[in-house]
């Protein structure tokens, strides 16, 4: 469980870490839009450079980024194979046996690969440099204008932060139940289909029971401490935008605007 890099917060000290979560979320959205523009190779080279600078500023190691991308590899290989069969346009680059490999298929896949990589790196930079709680606070602030259309911004943020808070507890619980059932002879890897189903049940049922117990107790604790879902609350953590946050905005707007102008010409 400790090897997952995607979505993990890294407690380092960098100028990116110190940015306001709202600024980071908006910057991410702007950059995502930029990535989806058909900017051509020069555009992607430019974006790539910007993203590279960002990771260096955030003090993230290449190895960490690589680990966060690994789960995508399977998808990309799958995509390449589909493209090879489906896209039979452009020039034939070479043939494997009698099967022709077309340039479009290869370039299309490369195109998507670059876009996905950039997106994953950007998202990883956001999650690795922002504490989960700050992230939910940022989301809450950004969603609050939508309260006029009755979007429960605060409740959504509360749900996310409680879910994040209980993930380690539930992981620990899962491991304990797995061990307890292993002591009763459960073998998660081997066995016939029926035995496997029982093994999974023996894990899932207790996990649900204990999750409901946590939820019940937690609801009592929250209520006892005066929590009423739709009542106004003051907030301990306050967000403040600084110069650096505006600088990030400016840079992202410049990149996006630049690409748009470039495409127009």
């Amino acid at each position: 469980m400790n090897n997952i890099a995607l979505g993990r917060y890294l407690p380092l000290d960098s100028c990116i870490h110190r940015l306001d979560p709202r600024a980071k979320i908006i910057a991410l959205i702007l950059m995502m839009v930029a990535i989806f523009l058909p900017a051509g190779w020069i555009g992607y080279a430019l974006l790539g450079c910007a993203v590279l600078c960002l990771t260096v500023l955030a003090k993230l190691k290449m190895n960490f980024l690589w680990r966060s991308m690994k789960p995508m590899m399977f998808m990309l290989v799958f995509l390449l194979i589909i493209n090879l069969f489906m896209l039979q346009n452009g020039t034939i680059l070479f043939e494997i046996g009698s099967f022709p490999i077309y340039s479009d298929a290869v370039f299309q896949t490369l195109y998507i690969t670059v876009r996905l990589m950039l997106m994953i790196i950007l998202t990883t930079v956001l999650t690795a440099t922002t504490k989960p709680l700050d992230l939910t606070l940022g989301i809450e602030h950004l969603l609050s204008p939508f309260k006029v259309i009755h979007l429960p911004a605060h409740e959504i943020a509360m749900m996310i932060s409680i879910a994040l808070r209980f993930i380690p507890t539930l992981i620990e619980e899962t491991q304990r139940i797995m061990k307890a059932q292993a002591s009763r002879g459960v073998d998660m890897e081997e066995g016939k289909l029926k035995e496997k189903i029982m093994s999974i049940l023996s894990l899932i049922v207790p996990l649900f029971v204990s999750a409901f117990q946590h939820a019940d107790d937690l609801a009592n604790a929250m209520e006892a401490r005066g929590y009423v879902p739709d009542r106004t609350r003051t907030r301990y953590k306050q967000l403040h935008m600084h110069i650096g946050d505006y600088v990030i905005f400016a840079i992202c707007f410049l990149i996006l605007g630049g690409l748009l102008v470039f495409l127009w010409i």
Partner: peptide, 11 residues
């Protein structure tokens, strides 16, 4: 309450 884990609400 009794269970220390189930009443810790903040991060």
């Amino acid at each position: 309450f009794q269970n220390p884990d189930n009443q810790f609400i903040g991060a």
